[in-house]
């Protein structure tokens, strides 16, 4: 079931078109990636969903109903450009943000204690924000975003400013929140995290959705018949009618090759022929990474072949 639905939303600032009839639907309880280069319109769309700005046309529905002013309390938003009141105490700040979202003070206090505990920040509760390290402040910011148990979470570049250790903790927390039933909209340039956590994505470029769907399906769709072949003891034989060899490297007598199948050639055929000629150690299809698809879609040019692939 679609929890969040963006229907035909358009927005223009002066002569600059920020969004051209963008539509998208996000399943309940899923993590949805919103991708796109800087200036593509991601933040404009996110601000419209947050009711910070209003669309020129189109509408946003939550649970099948057009959003109302009260729906902002169901959303937790972590903007890309984020910050805190430096002079406020950690506990006061978190409770202030929770109460702005309509939470009662007592409830907010109970929740806050748990979160501070989880992030190992309990002893900082009465310190001022300015006394915190950047990573700690980011954690406080995260708590402020999720403390009111929002049904929809919007993270804009959530990992910027986090070191790898804390980024991993954050990723786990995001997945945990998803498992607890939250729907998550996730805007990022970090394609590794997209592949790791997102089920579906929309790629926005020049104010339009240029690519959308399930991450796995997209990778399948963009595959280029590339395979890595490991041959033991001997180099890969050359069969120009079956494949072209893009790259070959020898390691301890074994050869790893990157091959591209000719159109119409099946995997079965190739493996059968190779089995006759050499000792086959491995044969694996290479799917393009989201990173590659992103760059290819946005620039219109493929990334240098065999470049940044992952398994």
């Amino acid at each position: 079931m679609n929890f969040l639905e963006v229907k035909d939303v358009a927005k223009q600032y002066g002569s600059h078109i920020a969004l051209k009839h963008v539509s998208m639907s996000v399943d309940q309880g899923s993590i949805y990636g919103l991708l796109g280069p800087n200036g593509a319109g991601k933040t404009s769309l996110i601000r419209i969903i947050n009711q910070i700005t209003h669309p020129d046309s189109g509408e946003v529905c939550i649970n099948g109903k057009p959003m109302t002013a009260d729906d902002v309390n169901k959303i937790g938003y972590l903007p890309e450009e984020r910050g805190l009141y430096k002079k406020m105490k950690v506990a006061d700040h978190i409770i202030y943000l929770a109460r702005l979202k309509g939470m009662k003070r007592a409830d907010a206090q109970v929740e806050m204690r748990q979160w501070l505990e989880r992030f190992d920040l309990s002893q900082w509760a009465n310190k001022k924000i300015e006394a915190l390290s950047k990573g700690m402040a980011q954690k406080v910011q995260f708590i402020g975003t999720v403390i009111h148990k929002p049904k929809l979470l919007i993270f804009d570049e959530p990992f910027s400013g986090f070191d790898p250790v804390n980024a991993e903790i954050l990723k786990q927390e995001i997945v945990r929140l998803r498992d607890e039933g939250a729907t998550i909209l996730f805007s990022t340039h970090n394609m590794g995290s997209v592949e790791a956590v997102c089920q579906n994505i929309s790629l926005i470029n020049h104010a339009e959705v240029v690519l959308e769907g399930e991450v796995n399906a997209i990778r399948q769709k963009y595959k280029k018949n590339l395979f890595t072949v490991l041959t033991l003891g001997s180099p890969l034989p050359i069969y120009n009618d079956l494949y072209a060899i893009d790259k070959m490297s020898v390691n301890c007598g074994n050869t790893e090759s990157l091959i591209r199948l000719r159109p119409g050639v099946t995997i079965r055929e190739v493996i059968a022929r190779l089995n006759e000629e050499c000792n086959l150690g491995g044969f694996q299809e290479l799917l393009p990474s989201m990173h590659e698809i992103f760059i290819e879609t946005v620039t219109g040019k493929p990334v240098s072949e065999g470049g940044q692939y992952n398994e």
């Binding site: 910070i52 309390n73 938003y77 972590l78 903007p79 984020r82 910050g83 430096k86 910011q141």
Partner: peptide, 16 residues
Amino acid sequence: EEKSNRIVEVIVSSCK
């Protein structure tokens, strides 16, 4: 201060 702290976007996502 709110603007240069970048807190303002967080706040206006909760209130008008």
